[in-house]
Amino acid sequence: MSFTDILLLMFSAVLVENFIFSRFYGCCPFLGVSEKPDTALGMGMAVTFVMTVSGAATWAVYRYLLVPFGLEYLQTVAFILVIAALVQFIEMFLRRFIPALYSALGIYLPLITTNCAVLSSALLIVQEDYNFIEAVCFGFSAALGFTLAITVFAGLRARMAYADPPRAFRGFPITLIAAGLLAMAFSCFSGVQL
């Protein structure tokens, strides 16, 4: 496992296989919390934080708890519990020790438990059989891709607020169509050979 491999893994997780535009993980917060660029960035940062830590935690739980006891089929239950506990723990930790970060991320943290990007990154790490360093890097860079997508999209939506679409398209439909166009832009990365 060389340094270049890690770099390639991260590049592909951020751009080529972007969680939102090519795999559809985490679309709910992507469409729900992207009205203003700064809240979108806050959500992205919270997700990055949780996904990096949960990548490491679920890797350890799978390798040292589920595999030795032959309980691999319980991975979904185990991972969602680990993620829920982790989010709760991170929330308490931040409130106690880093209040500034807590007040910035606080409201987004509880939402992350049901963010499918976090659970799917944990499941993908198991599926792809990553080692510990790869798991952490994958969690971090996939979340970075999520942050990139949600921030760019929030910028688009901030400008779209001044547009005047037909009445039936107002609100959610025009947002989805904008997301479709952005997905087209991102799909040009799918031709990149690594």
């Binding site: 535009f21 090519s22 559809f24 009445r167 039936a168 398209f169 107002r170 609100g171 959610f172 439909p173 025009i174 947002t175 989805l176 169509i177 997301a179 479709g180 166009l181 997905a183 087209m184 991102f186 799909s187």
Partner: peptide, 22 residues
Amino acid sequence: LLPPGAFLTLGFVIAAVQKLRG
């Protein structure tokens, strides 16, 4: 069949639903 088509189709379907509801 690709991701952009998914977003566009859902956008148009929801627009149609909003139109009908209106």
